[in-house]
Amino acid sequence: MKKTFLTLMLATLVIACGQEKKQPINTKIMNIQYPEINANNFEQKLAASVKHYEKEPMYYMRINKSNCVVEVLVNDYKIYKDYELSNLATPEEINHAILKSGEQTLTYRLYPVGDLIKEEYGEGGTVTTLTDNTAIAISIIKMDSNSEKTLEDEEVIIKHVSLTDAKGRFIASGKPYYEFTFSFNAQVPYVNEGWSKGQDLSKLDQKVLEQKAVEFYKEYGKIYENKEVDLQAKLNFGREKRAAIALYKKLSDIDGLWEEYLVDFNKKNIKTQPIDNYKKIFFGNGRIVFLLYQSLEYPYRGGGALRVDYIDKDGDEAVFMPNISLYLPEGKKLEDGLYMIN
């Protein structure tokens, strides 16, 4: 009797543990726009979606900052964030945020350095405002990726330097935040739909919107726990397709991309955390919703509310935060759920 009882107890524990680790995914909550995509054809379908042209203009952002940290958006789509004291050595590609030819906007947001100077040099206090010496310089440059030219042959589209007062002090000195937007023109041979045909989410029922976003984040987390690689491919195809088209990617550029996705599935002891301590924010002029995890600590700052814990190769606890940006295509009902952006 004891043996039978213990056997039943162990079997029950195994089943319970299995259920805890692998809960079924409600795919009705996560709308799928590319049902034909799977892990096996992901790269092939991406390569087939790209057209090539006689001229393939590439746009880059060259940025340099001091006494601040920064976030940058092109067409209200976040393309860059830097919460360190250092600067980029190479320019940043921005084509994936340029959906079509015409006027584009660039917005930068500056924040104080906080404890970075104290952490880096072991002296000084916490900096809670921007300073007299805060500064940023941004250049938009253009290259033809289909030519043999290098970045030394770049064409400068526009240069911007942050504003100062009559005494040369940063115009927002003493403030905890500063934002500035300027425009530039870009000419590209492609047209990406992206989120352009999405509904203005800021005008919809905000309680329902938040509920649907949280539900999507929760179900998305199960993808890693259940190792649903085909579902991952379907959901992320639109975003990768936009980038592949905008960057004129060749098959050699795409080859190995799916392997990068698989890295997250192969992590040890994967466990998603509750969706909490977040703030609902909009991008894409109200067409994109993102749940921002509200922490200024590394590595959480600027990341989404879905946090996936795991054990790294050194046996230490670590976390990754998938970028889940959602929208609602025209003609769709919010009650039926949201979609990953294209």
Score class of each variant (00 low, 15 high):
2 K>D: 10
12 T>I: 15
17 C>M: 14
17 C>Q: 07
20 E>D: 12
21 K>I: 04
22 K>G: 07
27 T>W: 06
28 K>I: 03
30 M>H: 07
31 N>M: 04
35 P>A: 09
36 E>P: 01
38 N>Q: 08
42 F>R: 03
47 A>Q: 04
48 A>M: 06
50 V>H: 04
55 K>I: 12
58 M>L: 12
64 N>G: 14
64 N>V: 15
68 C>S: 13
73 L>S: 14
73 L>Y: 10
75 N>K: 12
75 N>M: 14
77 Y>K: 11
77 Y>W: 03
81 K>H: 13
83 Y>C: 05
84 E>H: 00
88 L>I: 09
92 E>W: 09
94 I>K: 04
95 N>V: 03
97 A>S: 15
100 K>D: 10
102 G>W: 10
102 G>Q: 09
102 G>H: 05
113 V>W: 01
113 V>I: 15
114 G>W: 02
117 I>T: 05
119 E>Y: 04
120 E>R: 14
120 E>W: 01
121 Y>A: 04
124 G>V: 10
124 G>F: 03
125 G>H: 03
125 G>C: 07
126 T>A: 10
127 V>N: 11
133 N>T: 15
134 T>S: 14
137 A>W: 05
137 A>S: 15
140 I>K: 12
142 K>G: 09
145 S>K: 15
147 S>K: 15
147 S>R: 14
147 S>V: 13
147 S>E: 14
148 E>Q: 12
148 E>W: 03
151 L>M: 14
152 E>D: 14
152 E>M: 05
153 D>G: 03
157 I>E: 08
159 K>W: 00
159 K>S: 09
162 S>M: 08
163 L>R: 05
168 G>E: 09
170 F>M: 11
171 I>F: 01
172 A>L: 04
174 G>S: 06
176 P>W: 07
179 E>C: 03
179 E>F: 01
185 N>P: 00
186 A>S: 15
186 A>I: 13
187 Q>G: 09
187 Q>R: 11
189 P>L: 08
190 Y>Q: 13
192 N>Q: 05
193 E>H: 01
195 W>K: 01
198 G>K: 01
203 K>Y: 00
214 V>W: 00
224 Y>H: 08
226 N>G: 04
226 N>Y: 02
228 E>N: 15
229 V>F: 03
232 Q>I: 01
236 N>F: 12
237 F>Y: 15
238 G>N: 06
251 L>C: 01
253 D>N: 12
254 I>R: 08
260 E>A: 14
261 Y>I: 05
263 V>I: 13
264 D>W: 08
264 D>F: 12
266 N>H: 06
268 K>E: 06
274 P>H: 08
280 K>V: 14
280 K>R: 15
281 I>M: 12
286 G>D: 13
290 F>E: 08
291 L>M: 09
291 L>R: 04
292 L>W: 01
295 S>A: 06
296 L>Q: 06
298 Y>F: 11
298 Y>V: 09
299 P>T: 09
301 R>H: 04
304 G>V: 11
304 G>Q: 13
305 A>V: 07
305 A>Y: 00
306 L>W: 09
306 L>P: 06
308 V>A: 11
310 Y>E: 13
313 K>W: 05
317 E>N: 11
320 F>G: 02
320 F>E: 11
322 P>Q: 10
323 N>A: 09
324 I>V: 13
326 L>W: 00
328 L>D: 09
329 P>K: 05
331 G>Q: 03
336 D>I: 03
338 L>S: 07
